[in-house]
Amino acid sequence: MSALLKVEGLRVEIARRGRVMTAIDDVSFEIAAGEILGVVGESGAGKSVTGTAVLGLLERPAFQAAGRILFDGRRIDTLDEDAMRALRGREIAAVFQDPLTSLDPLMTIGDQLTETIRTHLDLTQAEAVERAARLLAEVGIPAPRERLASYPHEMSGGMRQRVVLALAFSCEPRLIIADEPTTALDVSIQAQILDLLRAMCRERGTAVMLVTHDMGVIAEVADRVAVMYAGRLVEVGPTQSLLAEAAHPYTRGLMGSIPDMHRRDVELAQIPGSMPRPDAPVPGCAFHPRCGQALPRCAVERPLTFTAGASEVACWLADPAARSAA
């Protein structure tokens, strides 16, 4: 199976006041056509930066220092701005965190939809309006034709995120980078938006890179999960097996921190300490200072990636050589 999106050895650096910090370090992953990949981690782990890099929207002082990004077999990280722009919104669309600020407050949602559609597709204004109304209906906005004339401030947060979804799907992209698409919404609305996103993707075979810090969201919609920590990928695997038996101590820590409604007596597990910041990198495995099972080599050698069950995990504990020696 050839991957729709292939990220290889991605490294993003931030140059600030003569110092170079590493935000993303040697990250590789794939997303197949129609697949939903959840990218999870604490804030600052580099999830959003990875999504931004795929969109080609890294801005100074951040820049891609190494690695390749391939979309549909074609290298896109070296495309010039015009070629990349033609891809954005057309083949790779985005949904951002805050629907209240994602839309231009001074323009009707109809105009925002038609301008996106007409930028990428060769349609007349009337055809674009028709398509915009159909999209609004599809994302579950009542009276879509009348709603085209509405301004963003006339809609609720949930409605606006539906509009953002309509914008993302407006040109039938093959990949959507969804960066915390439900984080800013009420819990009751979150589920609706997630269901909508999943349903629309399944129907169209659209792949999603779903960036979130919420394991619950991942469990709900993702086919596979990539766990990031301090700018590195620590574990990638199918959602079910990863939820059932995480191989990396950090992933297990994350699982332990999900509240369980049925067991109120159990104290919520925490991972002690905090994630190293890019300006103070940790040698060896970035997680070793917080890891209860750290080996001596974890503080010195950066872990290689091993296969553990259905997952790929970057941890010395999963080293077959170490395990057989023990």
């Binding site: 969109l55 929207l57 722009r85 033609a86 891809l87 954005r88 919104g89 057309r90 669309a93 985005a94 951002f96 805050d98 600020t101 994602s102 839309l103 231009d104 407050p105 301008e115 996106t116 930028t119 990428h120 953002v164 914008l167 980078i177």
Partner: peptide, 12 residues
């Protein structure tokens, strides 16, 4: 944010 989103929409 809406300018960033406009760029993500691929507008000129």
């Amino acid at each position: 944010d809406f300018i960033r989103f406009a760029r993500a929409r691929g507008l000129k």
